[in-house]
Design a binder for these strands. Structure first.
Lengths: 227, 227
DNA sequence: CGAGATTACGAGTGATTGCTCGCATTCGTC
DNA sequence: GACGAATGCGAGCAATCACTCGTAATCTCG
């Protein structure tokens, strides 16, 4: 829990463009923030993560988030302009975390590391992340939330798709591009489908299920790479 | 569209238990229904399917369903006691349809039919069904909707899980039961993950994607059956 | 036809909820 | 200590939505 307290620049919601010419017409100052404020933002995002994970986006009330954070509704709205902005801040944090988590697997030598090994190494941390931050799945990967909230994680999905496609291209250089694209899409979809199983499972079953997820993807790769 | 107009006993929402002793205290008569009423129910469920698929459960208003069906809100509440009951009626119809769709694959001779052939035969109709009834996925398979609505499809999921497990047991008689159970769970999860891809895809890409889904599952079976 | 039941309407109601506003408290800085 | 800015509060507003109710049209069937 509290996995993203002290995350990087969370909650910097308002626009950051400091206009160089003259003074802004009104209500456009950068707003200096105290340490107390940063702490409140972290509390609020943590609370939001829990409540979103329990109830989904639409069923979650901003008052419930504020209450869970031990804060009044008015205080919540000092840091976030509206409910969507809370989800947006969470989305940004999740995307950053996952990017950082997967960065090591961007550069791989197919001669030194097999697909099995690469997958085995990557899946563990990913699964741990989602178990620690169940709201990520509940909000953005499970088909919940209205469209404009789902859109918040479209860039992350696009990047993940590209990463998978690159990985496949690395290990199957002569696969036609169209098939590469489909392969990445199916892999991503299957992965998203199995994740809920892993997040809801008891701790002890996680290693087994993680290996099973690896088998699923590797079995597909087998059929994809040599027909 | 209109895939479930004239479906079997849709909309019989109220309890059917006619008490044999004395007369019920109040408000418990079986309610005779005219042909016009049955038609209205079909219209309402069809409209509900469309609106649910577009907006998800919570974001869908009962007034929107009524409007889409060309009916006043009051009329809607003559046939359904509340919003949940509409989703429940849809769930029942979907479950019945899928059961009927998958019945032929309950009895298979492993000597005469390979796993490839069985899967290839079953996936086509399933995919077509979900493309014709996107609300099924949006409501019950995508993680949307509050818990008590998701519960409506728990029996269907349990049956599907059992069906997959039985299929696996048929083609791998000496797999330990625990592994059989996990295998069915992962298969079901992967299948649920890829379905959205198939529902949202253009018509022309459907055959390719269906084959790809088959490859995903078969690849997993390969690794499951002979390690 | 006519009586009773069913169907249909749609403005309205009560509860919920995202969000605001006026004001009190605390912090950073001199 | 003092002043301005940031933080904090919570009752309450406006809008939304599931659902109701009084009433009128339409059907069934003798």
């Amino acid at each position: 829990m509290l996995a993203f307290v002290n995350g990087p620049t969370i909650g910097r919601v308002t626009a950051e463009t400091t206009p160089p010419t003259t003074e802004p017409a009104a209500a456009e100052r950068p707003r200096k923030r105290q340490a107390r404020g940063e702490r409140r933002i972290a509390q609020l995002l943590d609370a939001a993560g829990h409540v979103f994970a329990e109830s989904g986006y639409t069923a979650t009330t901003t008052n419930a988030i504020a209450a869970r954070a031990g804060v009044s509704p008015g205080s919540l709205y000092q840091y976030f302009p509206n409910k969507d902005a809370i989800a947006a801040a969470l989305a940004e944090f999740y995307a950053d975390s996952l990017d950082e988590l997967l960065a090591p697997f961007a550069v791989l030598d197919p001669a030194a590391v097999t697909l099995e090994e690469a997958l085995g190494g990557a899946l563990g941390p990913i699964v741990r992340f989602h178990r620690e931050n169940p709201a990520c799945l509940a909000l953005f990967i499970g088909g919940n939330a209205p469209g404009h909230v789902m859109d918040l994680q479209a860039p992350l999905m696009a990047r993940t798709h590209a990463r998978i496609e690159a990985l496949l291209a690395l290990y199957a250089p002569d696969l036609p591009p169209a098939r590469l694209e489909i392969g990445a899409a199916v892999t991503l979809a299957a992965y998203k489908g199995v994740l809920p199983l892993l997040v809801e499972a008891d701790e002890e079953r996680v290693p087994t299920l993680t290996r099973e997820l690896g088998d699923l993807l590797l079995g597909y790769f087998d059929r994809l790479l040599r027909p």
